[in-house]
Amino acid sequence: MQLELKRLARKHRIAPPPSVPTAPLPPVDGDWIFEGLAAPATIDSERTKFAAECWMPVRQNIPLLYRHGRLAGEVLEVRTTDKGLHVRALVRDNEAKQCTHFSVAATIHGYQLREVNNRESFHAVITCAALDEITLTNAPANPAAVVLHRYRQSAAVEFYDIVKRGIICAQGVVAALRVMNAAQVAPPQTVAGPDKRSACDLAGSRPTPVKAPTRPRPKTEFRTLVDAINATSGQVQ
Protein backbone atom coordinates (compact mmCIF):
# COMPACT_ATOMS: atom_id res chain seq x y z
CA MET A 1 0.00 0.00 0.00
CA GLN A 2 2.71 2.50 0.93
CA LEU A 3 4.63 1.68 -2.25
CA GLU A 4 1.56 2.41 -4.36
CA LEU A 5 1.00 5.70 -2.55
CA LYS A 6 4.62 6.67 -3.14
CA ARG A 7 4.24 5.80 -6.83
CA LEU A 8 1.17 8.02 -7.05
CA ALA A 9 3.02 10.81 -5.25
CA ARG A 10 5.88 10.64 -7.79
CA LYS A 11 3.35 10.57 -10.62
CA HIS A 12 1.71 13.75 -9.31
CA ARG A 13 5.09 15.23 -8.29
CA ILE A 14 4.18 15.68 -4.66
CA ALA A 15 6.87 15.68 -1.98
CA PRO A 16 6.27 13.95 1.35
CA PRO A 17 4.83 16.37 3.91
CA PRO A 18 7.26 17.56 6.61
CA SER A 19 6.76 16.28 10.11
CA VAL A 20 6.01 19.15 12.50
CA PRO A 21 6.06 18.04 16.15
CA THR A 22 3.67 19.60 18.61
CA ALA A 23 4.74 21.34 21.81
CA PRO A 24 4.89 18.90 24.75
CA LEU A 25 2.42 19.15 27.60
CA PRO A 26 3.62 20.31 31.04
CA PRO A 27 5.21 17.55 33.14
CA VAL A 28 3.02 15.94 35.81
CA ASP A 29 3.54 13.51 38.68
CA GLY A 30 1.74 10.25 39.31
CA ASP A 31 -0.23 8.02 36.97
CA TRP A 32 -2.61 9.63 34.48
CA ILE A 33 -5.50 8.50 32.29
CA PHE A 34 -5.39 9.51 28.60
CA GLU A 35 -8.42 9.25 26.32
CA GLY A 36 -8.94 10.01 22.64
CA LEU A 37 -9.14 8.67 19.10
CA ALA A 38 -6.03 6.64 18.42
CA ALA A 39 -7.04 6.15 14.77
CA PRO A 40 -9.61 8.71 13.58
CA ALA A 41 -11.57 7.82 10.45
CA THR A 42 -9.97 10.70 8.52
CA ILE A 43 -7.17 11.01 5.96
CA ASP A 44 -3.79 11.49 7.65
CA SER A 45 -0.65 13.25 6.45
CA GLU A 46 0.47 10.05 4.69
CA ARG A 47 -2.76 9.99 2.64
CA THR A 48 -4.06 6.98 4.54
CA LYS A 49 -7.44 6.57 6.19
CA PHE A 50 -8.51 3.83 8.60
CA ALA A 51 -12.18 3.18 7.88
CA ALA A 52 -14.27 3.22 11.04
CA GLU A 53 -15.43 -0.37 10.48
CA CYS A 54 -12.06 -1.77 9.35
CA TRP A 55 -10.88 -3.12 12.70
CA MET A 56 -10.74 -6.82 13.41
CA PRO A 57 -11.59 -7.97 16.98
CA VAL A 58 -8.99 -6.35 19.24
CA ARG A 59 -6.83 -8.86 21.13
CA GLN A 60 -6.07 -8.57 24.82
CA ASN A 61 -2.93 -6.84 26.15
CA ILE A 62 -2.36 -4.35 23.32
CA PRO A 63 0.90 -2.57 24.32
CA LEU A 64 0.98 1.16 25.05
CA LEU A 65 4.32 2.63 23.92
CA TYR A 66 6.12 5.93 23.85
CA ARG A 67 6.94 6.89 20.26
CA HIS A 68 6.73 3.23 19.13
CA GLY A 69 9.61 2.41 21.47
CA ARG A 70 9.53 1.67 25.18
CA LEU A 71 6.54 0.68 27.27
CA ALA A 72 4.61 3.73 28.51
CA GLY A 73 1.78 2.24 30.53
CA GLU A 74 -1.27 0.08 29.98
CA VAL A 75 -4.19 0.13 27.56
CA LEU A 76 -7.38 -0.05 29.62
CA GLU A 77 -10.02 0.04 26.87
CA VAL A 78 -10.23 0.01 23.08
CA ARG A 79 -13.52 0.36 21.24
CA THR A 80 -14.64 1.14 17.72
CA THR A 81 -16.92 4.12 17.05
CA ASP A 82 -18.28 5.77 13.93
CA LYS A 83 -15.52 8.38 14.33
CA GLY A 84 -12.65 5.91 14.64
CA LEU A 85 -10.80 3.79 17.19
CA HIS A 86 -11.25 5.16 20.71
CA VAL A 87 -8.73 4.34 23.44
CA ARG A 88 -8.44 4.85 27.20
CA ALA A 89 -4.99 4.23 28.66
CA LEU A 90 -3.13 4.43 31.95
CA VAL A 91 0.12 6.35 31.37
CA ARG A 92 3.07 5.94 33.75
CA ASP A 93 6.04 7.06 31.64
CA ASN A 94 6.98 10.69 32.40
CA GLU A 95 7.80 11.64 28.81
CA ALA A 96 4.71 9.89 27.49
CA LYS A 97 2.59 11.96 29.89
CA GLN A 98 3.75 15.06 27.96
CA CYS A 99 2.51 13.77 24.60
CA THR A 100 -0.40 15.40 22.83
CA HIS A 101 -1.39 12.71 20.31
CA PHE A 102 -1.96 9.02 19.77
CA SER A 103 -0.76 6.84 16.93
CA VAL A 104 -1.17 3.19 16.03
CA ALA A 105 0.70 0.34 14.38
CA ALA A 106 -1.48 -2.15 12.54
CA THR A 107 -1.27 -5.12 10.19
CA ILE A 108 -3.11 -4.24 6.99
CA HIS A 109 -5.23 -7.01 5.49
CA GLY A 110 -7.20 -4.99 2.95
CA TYR A 111 -7.22 -1.54 1.36
CA GLN A 112 -8.51 0.42 -1.62
CA LEU A 113 -6.95 3.29 -3.54
CA ARG A 114 -9.28 6.24 -4.03
CA GLU A 115 -9.20 9.15 -6.49
CA VAL A 116 -5.88 8.02 -7.97
CA ASN A 117 -6.08 10.60 -10.78
CA ASN A 118 -6.71 13.52 -8.47
CA ARG A 119 -3.47 15.20 -7.47
CA GLU A 120 -4.94 16.83 -4.40
CA SER A 121 -7.09 14.10 -2.91
CA PHE A 122 -5.71 10.65 -3.85
CA HIS A 123 -5.45 8.37 -0.81
CA ALA A 124 -5.78 4.79 0.45
CA VAL A 125 -8.68 3.57 2.56
CA ILE A 126 -7.82 0.67 4.87
CA THR A 127 -10.76 -1.71 4.88
CA CYS A 128 -9.40 -4.47 7.13
CA ALA A 129 -6.70 -4.17 9.80
CA ALA A 130 -5.51 -5.83 13.02
CA LEU A 131 -4.34 -3.52 15.81
CA ASP A 132 -0.76 -4.25 16.94
CA GLU A 133 0.07 -1.36 19.27
CA ILE A 134 -0.94 2.10 20.46
CA THR A 135 1.66 4.79 20.98
CA LEU A 136 1.87 8.29 22.43
CA THR A 137 3.73 10.88 20.41
CA ASN A 138 4.20 14.57 19.64
CA ALA A 139 4.75 13.90 15.93
CA PRO A 140 1.50 12.21 14.84
CA ALA A 141 0.74 10.92 11.36
CA ASN A 142 -2.85 12.03 11.88
CA PRO A 143 -3.28 15.47 13.50
CA ALA A 144 -6.83 14.47 14.46
CA ALA A 145 -5.56 11.71 16.79
CA VAL A 146 -5.35 14.17 19.65
CA VAL A 147 -5.52 13.33 23.36
CA LEU A 148 -9.00 14.61 24.19
CA HIS A 149 -8.96 14.03 27.96
CA ARG A 150 -6.09 13.80 30.42
CA TYR A 151 -6.72 13.43 34.14
CA ARG A 152 -5.00 12.00 37.19
CA GLN A 153 -5.95 8.46 38.08
CA SER A 154 -8.19 8.55 41.14
CA ALA A 155 -8.62 5.82 43.71
CA ALA A 156 -12.14 5.17 42.39
CA VAL A 157 -10.92 4.73 38.82
CA GLU A 158 -8.07 2.49 39.98
CA PHE A 159 -10.51 0.35 42.01
CA TYR A 160 -12.84 0.07 39.00
CA ASP A 161 -10.00 -1.10 36.76
CA ILE A 162 -8.78 -3.62 39.36
CA VAL A 163 -12.29 -5.04 39.75
CA LYS A 164 -12.75 -5.20 35.97
CA ARG A 165 -9.47 -7.10 35.51
CA GLY A 166 -10.41 -9.39 38.42
CA ILE A 167 -13.74 -10.24 36.79
CA ILE A 168 -12.02 -11.01 33.48
CA CYS A 169 -9.48 -13.21 35.28
CA ALA A 170 -12.24 -15.03 37.20
CA GLN A 171 -14.14 -15.67 33.99
CA GLY A 172 -11.01 -17.18 32.50
CA VAL A 173 -10.53 -19.45 35.53
CA VAL A 174 -14.17 -20.60 35.39
CA ALA A 175 -13.85 -21.35 31.67
CA ALA A 176 -10.65 -23.33 32.28
CA LEU A 177 -12.29 -25.36 35.07
CA ARG A 178 -15.22 -26.18 32.80
CA VAL A 179 -12.84 -27.45 30.15
CA MET A 180 -10.96 -29.54 32.71
CA ASN A 181 -14.18 -31.04 34.07
CA ALA A 182 -15.39 -31.87 30.58
CA ALA A 183 -12.08 -33.58 29.80
CA GLN A 184 -12.21 -35.85 32.84
CA VAL A 185 -13.02 -39.51 32.16
CA ALA A 186 -13.94 -42.40 34.45
CA PRO A 187 -10.90 -44.26 35.86
CA PRO A 188 -10.09 -47.49 34.01
CA GLN A 189 -11.60 -50.59 35.55
CA THR A 190 -9.53 -53.70 36.18
CA VAL A 191 -10.83 -56.71 34.22
CA ALA A 192 -10.02 -60.10 35.65
CA GLY A 193 -8.20 -62.41 33.28
CA PRO A 194 -9.51 -65.85 32.30
CA ASP A 195 -9.28 -68.62 34.91
CA LYS A 196 -6.61 -71.09 33.76
CA ARG A 197 -7.83 -74.08 35.86
CA SER A 198 -9.37 -77.11 34.16
CA ALA A 199 -13.09 -77.59 33.81
CA CYS A 200 -12.93 -80.36 36.43
CA ASP A 201 -11.21 -78.16 38.97
CA LEU A 202 -13.72 -75.45 38.34
CA ALA A 203 -16.64 -77.87 38.80
CA GLY A 204 -15.21 -79.17 42.06
CA SER A 205 -14.48 -75.75 43.41
CA ARG A 206 -17.96 -74.41 42.92
CA PRO A 207 -19.90 -74.20 46.20
CA THR A 208 -23.14 -76.13 46.52
CA PRO A 209 -25.97 -73.72 46.03
CA VAL A 210 -28.14 -73.25 49.12
CA LYS A 211 -31.80 -72.70 48.59
CA ALA A 212 -33.34 -69.87 50.46
CA PRO A 213 -36.05 -70.98 52.98
CA THR A 214 -39.50 -70.68 51.57
CA ARG A 215 -42.16 -68.95 53.57
CA PRO A 216 -45.62 -70.61 53.85
CA ARG A 217 -48.13 -69.01 51.62
CA PRO A 218 -51.05 -67.41 53.47
CA LYS A 219 -54.35 -69.30 53.30
CA THR A 220 -57.04 -67.97 51.12
CA GLU A 221 -60.72 -67.95 52.15
CA PHE A 222 -61.39 -70.85 49.78
CA ARG A 223 -58.60 -72.93 51.32
CA THR A 224 -59.90 -72.24 54.81
CA LEU A 225 -63.37 -73.42 53.80
CA VAL A 226 -61.98 -76.63 52.26
CA ASP A 227 -59.99 -77.42 55.44
CA ALA A 228 -63.10 -76.89 57.56
CA ILE A 229 -65.16 -79.26 55.38
CA ASN A 230 -62.44 -81.95 55.56
CA ALA A 231 -62.27 -81.62 59.31
CA THR A 232 -66.03 -82.00 59.66
CA SER A 233 -66.06 -85.03 57.39
CA GLY A 234 -63.46 -86.75 59.59
CA GLN A 235 -65.50 -86.23 62.72
CA VAL A 236 -68.58 -87.72 61.08
CA GLN A 237 -66.76 -90.91 60.08
Rank of each mutant, 00 (worst) to 15 (best):
L8K: 00
E77P: 00
T100I: 08
P17E: 14
L3I: 12
T137H: 06
D201E: 15
K49I: 05
F159Q: 15
K164P: 00
C200F: 10
L225R: 15
C200G: 09
R119D: 11
D195A: 02
R92K: 08
Y111V: 03
A203Y: 15
L85Q: 10
S233F: 08
Q171L: 08
K11P: 03
V173K: 11
L177D: 12
Q237A: 10
G69W: 11
R206S: 15
A182W: 08
R59M: 12
S103W: 01
P26S: 13
E158G: 05
D82M: 03
V20Q: 05
P218F: 07
Q237V: 13
F122W: 07
C200M: 12
P16Q: 04
L113S: 00
V210C: 09
R152V: 03
T208W: 06
Q189R: 13
V163C: 13
A145E: 13
W55T: 06
I62Q: 14
I126D: 02
M56S: 14
V104Q: 08
H68S: 14
G110K: 03
Y66N: 13
Q171M: 10
H149A: 04
L5A: 09
S154A: 11
V185N: 04
L131P: 02
R223L: 04
E221A: 15
F34V: 06
N138C: 10
V125E: 15
A39I: 14
A106P: 05
A155Q: 14
V91K: 00
P24R: 01
L136Q: 07
H123D: 02
R165T: 05
T107W: 06
N61L: 15
P24W: 00
Q112Y: 00
A124H: 07
L25W: 01
R67Q: 14
T208Y: 06
T48K: 04
A124P: 06
A9V: 08
T22G: 02
C54Q: 10
Q153K: 12
